[in-house]
Amino acid sequence: MRSWLQQSKIEILRNVRNRRFFVFSLLLPVGFYLLYVHLLGAHKQIGGTTWATYYMMSMATFSVVGAGLNGLSSRIAFERTQGWLRLVQTTPLSSIHYVTTKIVANLLMNMAEVVVLFLVGGAVEHVQLTAVQWILSGLWIAFGGLAFIVLGILIGQIAGMDASQVIASAAYFILSITGGLWFPLNSLPPLMQHVATYMPTYHLAHVAWQLVSGKSPSFADFAVLLCYFVVFTALALWVTARRRDVRAA
């Protein structure tokens, strides 16, 4: 337990001290949020709520997706290829600890990002929600981000140090744009709207959008996101097992 806490602490510190994290997970989403709310008008109605509220959910999701993808992929690739993982493997630390502390640290960062976005939305753009809406949508986005944490781990397992950073950044922007996080779906052409329904980003945000407009999320949102989570996890486990075989061959 002590090692688990210590390991989590280090992982969190490494996130907090990382400049990339601030740029991608906080500056970018907050900047986008303030910019687009001012360009389109905070009180404009969309999907049964105000644009300021709707886009706060979009950007909180965008932030969480970025933290999962960018935070872990390059770090795992680095530790895997530069000898650190080998050294850790000679210690009593179990591989389960190694992975779970990284995941937990990332989930905590997700919560922090959501809080920051919500604070900006509430304080600057005067977004008003019920306590239940704030809490449920916040927790959902932070924990729903697990799928992207696992995707980040998967990228770090497959790609080398430089490649993983490029792949993670590319995935971050492509998934965010096609999932309707940057621009609301109804402003996109029909083909894009159709594509979005297959994107994990869309479903993560859609649950939050539904919650804040007083509607109930659909079963499909949970099902699609769960599918992605299961596939990413299975792939990550498979790659890890396969790599161990190769080394042992």
């Binding site: 510190l13 490494r14 001290r17 990382n18 770090r75 680095f78 530790e79 530069q82 000898g83 650190w84 080998r86 050294l87 000679t90």
Partner: peptide, 9 residues
């Protein structure tokens, strides 16, 4: 071990 890069930050 040899050739171990320490983690940043």
């Amino acid at each position: 071990l040899q050739q171990v890069s320490l983690p940043a930050k």
